[in-house]
Amino acid sequence: MRVLVLGMGKTGKLVATVAAERGHSVNVLDAKENAGASALTPPFVSGFDVVIDFTTPEATIQNMRACLATGAKMVIGTTGWYEKLNDMRGLAERKQAGLLYGTNFSVGVQVMFRLAKTMGADLKKAGYAFSIAETHHASKLDSPSGTAITLAKVVEAAAGVSEVPVEARREGDVMGLHTLTATSDADRLVLTHEAFSRRGFAEGAVRAAEWLASRTGCYDFQDVYTEV
Rank of each mutant, 00 (worst) to 15 (best):
V3R: 00
V3N: 02
T11S: 08
E21Q: 13
V26W: 05
A31W: 14
N34R: 03
S38C: 12
S38F: 07
L40C: 00
P42M: 02
D53G: 13
F54V: 14
T55S: 15
E58S: 14
E58G: 11
T60P: 00
Q62D: 14
T70A: 01
K73E: 06
V75Q: 00
T78R: 05
E83G: 15
K84Y: 13
L85S: 14
N86W: 04
E93N: 13
G102C: 04
Q110D: 09
Q110G: 15
R114E: 15
A116T: 03
K117Y: 13
M119N: 03
G120A: 02
G120I: 04
K125H: 13
F130E: 01
S131W: 00
E134K: 03
T135I: 15
K140I: 08
T147P: 04
I149Q: 14
A152P: 01
K153N: 12
E156S: 07
A158D: 08
S162F: 11
E163K: 13
E163P: 00
P165E: 08
R170W: 06
G172C: 07
V174Q: 12
A182K: 01
T183H: 09
R188Q: 15
T192I: 08
G200C: 07
G204P: 00
R207Y: 09
R207G: 11
A209M: 06
L212E: 03
A213Q: 14
Q222Y: 13
V228S: 05
